[in-house]
């Protein structure tokens, strides 16, 4: 099994598309950094406009934490694109290339094949988030230094002590990975259904976009539906930037995502084990 995963990873990282995600983040995040060097202070001023009226404050609010938070907030919607690029290709890519025939005629079970591909996809997802974390937190640290994290949470301004932030980011990145895994599972499911990798990428993104739009419509029916949509919970990494932590809510979101992952993956297994390979 380990060897199968290693082979799948080798295949993933021999493909050009795999690097699109890494390159995209590698370009985008430094751009955000540059923008923050130039405009960061006015962003802070904008965010703290109201407290500036009544308060005097000192401290480095324009720090790597704030910027990492802004990056995570801004990119969390777009990273799924990068994830599906690879996850949607995992199975469909073999169909397109005709290499299903090479794989499935070998003495391995389809279940193991699916699992190794899925795990390889998860590793890719993790690496992409790690890369995101590295670029935002660590590279950001060398540009902006550390400091307290300022967050606007609904109608509240929360400032976290600098020593109280890193663990939140670690958990938030972990949670973001869980969310992206749900996205990857969906793309993987679609990937098992079709013979080209464009289909899964587009369908996954379409579903995410439709769900996000539904969630945004202020109609009771859609709002009632919202807690059940996995897209709602992709952004739940933010729950780690609350004081105190809402453990119940975190658990809810995590369970929702995990259930989605299990269902998507289970369906993939079920479908793929019965699939006639005609390509």
């Amino acid at each position: 099994m380990l060897d199968l995963i290693r082979i799948e990873l080798y295949k993933i990282f021999k493909k050009w598309r795999t690097y699109i995600g890494f390159i995209a983040l590698g370009v985008l995040i430094p751009l955000i950094h540059i923008a923050m060097v130039l405009e960061g202070q006015s962003t802070i001023n904008f965010m703290t406009r109201n407290i500036q009226e009544s308060f005097v404050f000192v401290g480095n609010l324009l720090n790597t934490y704030l910027i990492s938070y802004i990056i995570l907030t801004s990119l969390a919607v777009h990273i799924p694109f990068l994830i599906t690029l690879v996850a949607g290709d995992l199975l469909a890519g073999e169909a397109t290339a005709g290499t299903y025939r090479l794989l499935i005629t070998r003495p391995i079970s389809r279940t193991r094949l699916i699992m190794s591909k899925f795990i390889a996809g998860l590793i890719y997802t993790n690496l992409l988030i790690l890369w995101l974390a590295f670029l935002s937190l660590i590279v950001g640290y060398f540009i902006f230094g550390s400091g307290e994290l300022l967050i606007i949470d609904g109608q509240m301004i929360i400032i976290f002590e600098r020593n109280d932030v890193l663990w939140r980011f670690i958990l938030a990145y972990g949670f973001a990975t869980l969310g992206m895994t749900a996205v990857a599972s969906l793309a993987f499911l679609f990937s098992s259904l079709v013979e080209n990798s464009i289909g899964p990428i587009i369908s996954t993104m379409a579903i995410i976009i439709v769900f996000l739009i539904l969630s945004a419509i202020q109609v009771d029916f859609f709002q009632d539906l919202k807690p059940y949509l996995f897209t709602t919970h992709i952004m739940s990494w933010r729950l780690f930037f609350e004081n105190p932590l809402d453990l119940k809510e975190i658990f809810n979101s995590a369970s929702n995502l995990i259930i989605h992952i299990i269902v998507f993956f289970g369906l993939t297994l079920f479908i793929f084990n019965r699939k006639d390979i005609l390509t």
Partner: peptide
């Protein structure tokens, strides 16, 4: 089976290595 398709982005050697390991 039908036309011979391989991982085009890998070398002949690597293709065989991967398939052998899977076997």
């Amino acid at each position: 089976v039908e036309k011979p398709d391989f991982y085009g982005y890998l070398s002949a050697y690597k293709n065989l290595e991967i398939l052998g390991r899977i076997s």
